[in-house]
């Protein structure tokens, strides 16, 4: 870092790009998980809890095993279990999936904080990153393009999921179940089983998103690690219109918007930082308001989902 020259105002777009890459990964994984769940006709509002459980499990297992990848795998497993429980609870008649989500969020936060106490202080091995900034001499650009393997995995997953929904039997099954329980039954599909599995896999994705928080960025476990990423992802899925590739862009947009606050302060625009920090929420709400309509059903919305009915 010998040539640490200031970038001035150029720092803002660069920070937004870097922030988008750094901050978006948890949003990406959670929203992909939520996308899968919602496509099957369920909503899982408990992914905030799953995210935190994933963060804690990932960190703890990375600490004990010495391998961050074992941490990620454990986080996925923990998320899977949480998703499975959510899916199972929601398969009872008259049980409201949004409320179950909130209760699973409380349980997830409670268990993560309960078992996470001994891991606040220790340092666990982190996930590696790949440098895509080798072509540039500017250290800031190099830093912004330090891309974590999970970000790449998430991007690939988004495209894979989009392809899956369109072209595979599994994808079709999930979509049919999400659009009409009756239609699925006539096709000989068991809707409840598909939904439970989709919720479980969605939970696993959220768990991975959590492990990114504790194992890469910001890269340590604490009780304040998640600040609503899991809840926000639910909103992102709606404005991504249940399309995994749009989820990817939405997560990037949200991550980038989150970088505006610190970046503006760093170039001397220092007043009103609370409002700049709220930029991602204002942006999301604005897009939702602009693109929603009472006239037509939301394009891409699964017909069986309680939230769009």
């Amino acid at each position: 870092m010998t040539d640490a020259s200031a970038l001035g105002m150029w720092g803002v777009p660069l920070a937004i790009l870097g922030g988008a890459i750094r901050v978006s990964t948890p949003f990406l994984f959670v929203s992909l998980g939520e996308c899968l769940t919602e496509r099957s006709g369920r909503i899982n509002l408990g992914l905030e809890g799953t995210l935190v459980i994933g963060a804690m499990t990932g960190y703890a297992m990375s600490y004990h095993s010495g391998s961050p990848f074992i941490g990620v795998a454990s986080a996925a497993l923990a998320g899977l279990v949480f998703g499975l429980i959510h899916g199972w609870l929601c398969s009872f008649r008259h049980v409201n999936d949004i409320a179950v989500g909130i209760s699973m969020m409380i349980v997830g936060l409670g268990l993560a904080f309960y078992f996470g106490k001994p891991y606040i202080q220790p340092t666990a091995p982190r996930l590696p990153s790949i440098s895509f900034g080798w072509w540039s001499d500017i250290p800031q650009v190099q830093a912004a393009l330090q891309v974590n393997v999970l970000f790449i995995a998430g991007a690939v997953l988004a495209f894979l999921m989009a392809w899956m929904f369109r072209n595979t039997r599994i994808g079709l099954t999930v979509r049919v179940v999400g659009d009409s329980t009756d239609a699925a039954r006539t096709l000989g599909i068991r809707p409840t089983r598909v939904r439970v599995l989709a919720t479980a896999v969605g939970g696993a994705f959220a768990g991975v998103g959590g492990s990114y928080l504790s194992l890469y960025y910001p890269g340590s476990w604490s009780e304040g690690i998640a600040s609503g990423q899991g809840l926000m992802a639910v909103a992102l899925v709606i404005f991504a219109r249940w399309n995994p590739i749009n989820c990817f862009w939405a997560a990037l947009l949200f991550g980038g918007a989150g970088a505006i606050g610190p970046a503006l302060q760093s170039v001397g625009i220092t007043q009103g930082y609370y409002l700049f920090y709220a930029a991602p929420y204002v942006l999301t709400l604005g897009i939702l308001v602009a693109t929603s309509s009472t006239e037509r059903a939301m394009t891409g919305a699964p017909g069986e989902m309680s939230i769009t009915k």
Binding site: V234, I238, L285, L288
Partner: peptide, 11 residues
């Protein structure tokens, strides 16, 4: 506007 109330109230 047909905006989902759960999400908008959260935001």
């Amino acid at each position: 506007r047909g905006v989902n109330e759960t999400i908008s109230s959260l935001l």
